[in-house]
Design a protein around this nucleic acid. Structure first.
Lengths: 227, 227
DNA sequence: ACGAACTGAATGACCGTTCATTCAGATCTA
DNA sequence: TAGATCTGAATGAACGGTCATTCAGTTCGT
């Protein structure tokens, strides 16, 4: 398990349920009883969790709150998710999978590395700007422990940064971008800018469209601030 | 000691005094007794808290862990800090105050806006690179809840970003930097880059000097990646 | 009727916080 | 200077409330 939020005791004395082994690295995907009856509860609960975590914060939110928001009983949550941590992890996993998938697909239609960078920025801001609760969970709640960050950083973020780096490296090969720059560092700078703008947008009281800023960020990244 | 209640006989037996109910609502009176005797406990505990929070994460760390690391009893922590939250706030407050103070002072000796940006990057990386535990608390633990983030964002970060923005705006006025750019957005991009590089450094298994990257970041920010 | 899905009260470990008590040193008194 | 007295920092066991998790029982779908 990635994070240990609030360690819970072992079940009742009777059953000696073996605590799942360390789960070195990534957790097992197997879930309890997914079912498939009407009104997909899985997605419903995940959506409710996103809202509740965004509202109260992961640690302060109770599983009972999530259940209430989803209109189910507390126990039902455990029919679909292994633990509270699993809720957070699932939000993260699902969103990243979609984002990377969608990003890869969108990039296929664009050839020019410069245009690709612009498209990445647009997609990034669109995705976050579309769903504020999800953005809060991503920008804030997901970063609550080094253990989780480690995981985040070594899997999905690594892949995301890799995509950006490859675009930049490709641009260098084609002679469009400065060859003397380290593409890995450049990718971090670009991502850092996107990330910071997103965090600022979330925490800001002002309401503006996040996508408005995409062009400016790309402009600065491409041409710099110097005259 | 002034007489409080009836004298107690045995030193070990359980107490028989009714406890005061948890102060409902918001309290936050004021800190107890700061004291000033030798061996500043305040700083000692704060240092221990930084280490323990970095190691286990704020929510998973127990106050007792912090006390143990500081070599004091659990109760002693409450002689110096109002609550567990107060520990985190204090780490944040003290560090930001020092950083902003030091940053302002360092900038006074530099006139050129471009050189100033370089100096900001250097100082930023130096500060974080010097103390990994502190960096972890800053990059990860402090951002775990919107409550802290809100506070973080609306006070110290705002000021920090303001310093960067002013340097950029000054550069624009002097005709050194592109006037058509929004200095606020540019400041966020710059800070975002510094922040991302720092987070990456913390989470990376590789050990490298963070300050090594300062020049590259500034180069990209100033000149862009385009040829 | 049967299993699957769902419910929600009950369980019990966990941990922030309190405060009666101790005691090393400071201050006072003769 | 020695003893008596005082002081308040430090201690740490115990309290009290919180919540993740479970599971025996109920409801639903077919």
């Amino acid at each position: 398990m990635p994070i240990r939020s609030t360690p819970r005791p072992a079940p009742r004395p009777a059953r000696a349920v073996t605590r799942r082994p360390p789960a070195a690295g990534i957790r097992e995907p197997e879930r309890r009883a997914p079912a498939s009856s009407r009104g997909d509860k899985h997605a419903l609960i995940l959506r409710a969790a996103t809202e509740v975590f965004a509202e109260r914060g992961f640690f302060n939110a109770q599983v009972a709150d999530v259940a209430r928001a989803a209109g189910v009983a507390a126990g039902t949550v455990y029919l679909y998710f292994r633990s509270k941590d699993d809720l957070l992890f699932s939000i993260f996993e699902r969103t990243m999978r979609e984002a990377i998938e969608q990003g890869r697909a969108a990039l296929e239609g664009v050839d020019d590395p410069v245009a690709r960078l612009a498209r990445i920025a647009e997609l990034h801001f669109e995705r976050m700007g579309r769903d504020r609760d999800l953005a809060v969970v991503f920008q804030v709640e997901l970063r609550q422990s080094t253990k989780f960050m480690q995981q985040f950083s070594s899997t999905a973020l690594r892949e995301y940064l890799g995509i950006i780096r490859d675009v930049i490296a490709d641009g260098q090969v084609r002679g469009l971008l400065r060859r003397e720059l380290n593409p890995t560092v450049a990718a971090k700078v670009f991502f850092g800018a996107l990330d910071e703008l997103t965090t600022n947008w979330i925490l800001s009281k002002r309401r503006y469209r996040l996508t408005e800023e995409a062009a400016a960020v790309v402009d600065i990244f491409l041409h710099g601030v110097k005259r």
